[in-house]
């Protein structure tokens, strides 16, 4: 969740909403609906998408081709949301998502971004020293793995498709989903058995 807003920022927010309402650009009802969609969204949906992609080749193909359709197929409300791109980790390539300009995050799918994702420290360091950031997260990367930082700057939102760990052979999709965390979907962590 975001840090609690201060009194000053709440007052500014109220003025902004009032100005947008006066201009007819947004209504309170639209804001409430958008909040409800984000409140319903949860990393659990992303986890179930990954688990299904690991166990269902057809769903995997859909996920890589059309992230929004794959999210909707698992119950996410993606109407009006930006495009969803999926970044597949491999034994030779690990993706790390950051938004250096602000805090772009697949909210419609994963819900509110965690505070650290919006911090200046993460946004400036992930793009400059990703290996150090990953090591601090307890996710050290071998030298022969390419770190690909994905700076989310425009009209897509990005989700990482982590690798299925060894030792999960024969697991159900439900059990697989239980080891896939929000942090693994951003790329700061990897699923572990």
């Amino acid at each position: 969740m975001a840090a609690p807003p201060s009194g000053a920022s709440l007052a500014l927010l109220e003025k902004l909403v009032a100005a947008l309402s006066t201009k007819g650009l947004v209504t309170e009802a639209e804001i409430t609906e958008r909040q409800a969609i984000t409140d319903r969204a949860s990393p659990e949906i992303g986890a179930r998408m990954v688990a299904r992609a690991w166990t269902d080749p057809e769903y995997y193909a859909l996920l890589m081709r059309d992230g929004k359709a794959a999210a909707e197929a698992m119950g996410a409300s993606m109407a009006g949301a930006p495009e969803l791109g999926v970044l597949e980790n491999t034994p030779k390539q690990h993706h790390l998502v950051v938004c250096t300009l602000c805090s772009c995050y697949p909210r419609a799918l994963l819900g509110y971004p965690p505070g650290w994702y919006k911090s200046f420290a993460y946004r400036s360091r992930a793009v400059r020293e990703p290996r150090a950031v990953l090591a601090e997260w307890g996710t050290p990367m071998a030298d022969d793995v390419e770190i690909r930082v994905v700076d989310s700057t425009a009209d897509y939102r990005w989700m990482v498709l982590p690798m299925r760990p060894a030792g999960t052979e024969g697991w159900s999709a439900e059990k697989l989903a239980s080891i896939i965390t929000r942090d693994a979907l951003v790329g700061v962590a990897v699923p572990r058995v």
Binding site: R128, P130, R131, E146, R148, V149, D151, S152, T153, Y156
Partner: peptide, 27 residues
């Protein structure tokens, strides 16, 4: 038109590990 553009990461900062990359959406 929007593109995904890939950059070698170390030359940008004069540090980092050869082979690491950064991918950015650029108009």
């Amino acid at each position: 038109q929007l593109y995904h553009v890939l950059f070698e990461q170390p030359p940008i900062w004069d540090e980092g590990k050869a082979g690491d990359t950064v991918m950015v959406e650029i108009f």
